[in-house]
């Protein structure tokens, strides 16, 4: 007999026990582990999907912001360019104004300097001319400059015609017979006496003659009677010299081509 029924029953029982044991120790744990892994992977995928969506949103937001920033930047740049242009224009205008002011100031300064120089030159020239003339007269003719000037002044007075003399006399009468003689330097007593005598002869015997020294008087002698003035000075010579010097200076100041 190939079939042993006790063995059949025992084997069937063994098999059913094995089914239960394997179900408990093999299939269920393995399936649970697979399910758990699948759930975890699904959760991770869902999470990744969410993150991807978030990243996409963030990317779009970023791109939008980037675009806005670009627009703002372009706007700011154009504004800055406009402001820079206006500022440049303003600064240029300011600079032009300042340059013009400086130029005007420079011109004024130059004029003042020239004037000052002219005055200095005039004064120095006067002194030099007097010194040279005094020395030359003393060396050549043996006379002093003051004497010679007084003589020339007197000769001029004497050369007046009768009308001119009458005018001076009438003016003298209005000024209570006071004649003022001004000179750039102190006249020697001899010259003063000579002038006093000569003037009394010419104008009025009882006229009072007063001598004054006026350093600002340009190297000469002048006679003041009321509103009339008779003078001799080297002012004309100096004016000529000044004119020539001015021309020379102007020529030098011009820029070379």
């Amino acid at each position: 007999m190939l079939i042993d029924w006790f063995t059949v029953i025992a084997q069937a029982a063994n098999f059913l026990i094995l089914v239960w044991l394997l179900k408990r120790f093999l299939y269920q744990p393995i399936l649970n582990a697979i399910d758990a892994r699948e759930k975890r992977i699904a959760a991770e995928l869902a999470n990744a999907g969410t993150k991807q969506a978030e990243a996409q949103n963030e990317r779009e937001t970023f791109q939008h912001k980037n675009k806005e920033l670009d627009q703002q930047r372009a706007l700011l740049l154009s504004q800055a360019a406009e402001e820079a242009q206006s500022e440049r224009q303003y600064l240029l205008d300011q600079a032009r104004k300042e340059a013009a002011a400086l130029d005007a100031k420079l011109q004024e300064s130059l004029r003042n300097e020239q004037l000052s120089l002219t005055r200095e030159i005039t004064s120095r020239t006067q002194q030099e001319v007097f010194a040279i003339a005094r020395k030359a007269l003393a060396d050549l003719a043996g006379i002093s400059l003051e004497e010679r000037m007084a003589e020339v002044f007197l000769r001029r007075l004497r050369d007046f015609n009768s009308d001119e003399k009458a005018q001076l006399t009438s003016s003298l009468m209005l000024q209570e017979d006071t004649i003022v003689v001004r000179s750039a330097f102190d006249l020697p007593q001899a010259q003063q006496d000579l002038l006093e005598i000569s003037l009394r002869e010419l104008l009025a015997a009882d006229a009072q003659v007063r001598f004054e020294t006026a350093p600002n008087l340009v190297s000469g002698i002048e006679l003041v009677i009321g509103g009339h003035k008779v003078a001799w000075s080297i002012a004309d010579y100096l004016a000529s010299l000044e004119r020539n010097t001015g021309e020379l200076l102007n020529n030098k100041r011009k820029p070379q081509p």
Binding site: L18, L21, F25, P29, N32, A33, A36, R40
Partner: peptide
């Protein structure tokens, strides 16, 4: 049976997900 059950138990005891 012993081999199958013990083998399964040994392996499934330390399952990781």
């Amino acid at each position: 049976m012993l081999m199958l059950v013990i083998g399964a138990r040994l392996i499934t005891r330390k399952l990781v997900t």
